[in-house]
């Protein structure tokens, strides 16, 4: 059972990573990055690493995507 969960989470992470790197438009990338961060957190939970999963949720799904969004907003506000 656990093996299946881990396999599924790994697949989700592998696809998520490709999706983030493949999203050309940074504004949308903030969203995919947040979802990818969530997938990583799930993986860490099933790998019995709750400490790491908590950090990942706090940082990977909230703070970093927020900073990306703000950076994109700042850059989009001043087009060339």
């Amino acid at each position: 059972m656990n093996t299946i969960l881990i396999g599924a989470a790994l697949t989700l992470v592998a696809l998520g990573g490709a999706a983030v790197a493949g999203t050309a438009e940074p504004g949308r990338q903030a969203v995919t990055l947040s979802l990818f961060g969530l997938a990583l957190a799930v993986l860490f939970f099933v790998l019995q690493a709750p400490d790491v999963a908590l950090s990942q949720i706090a940082v990977g799904t909230a703070v970093v995507p927020l900073m990306v969004m703000l950076a994109v907003r700042k850059i989009d506000r001043n087009p060339p």
Binding site: L66, M67, L70, R73, K74, R77, N78
Partner: peptide, 23 residues
Amino acid sequence: VVVLLAQFLDQALRIASERDGKG
């Protein structure tokens, strides 16, 4: 983290460059 986010929020919401258009 508060200081970091503040820098980004300030850039996104508050600071504009004179060279920008109406921004």
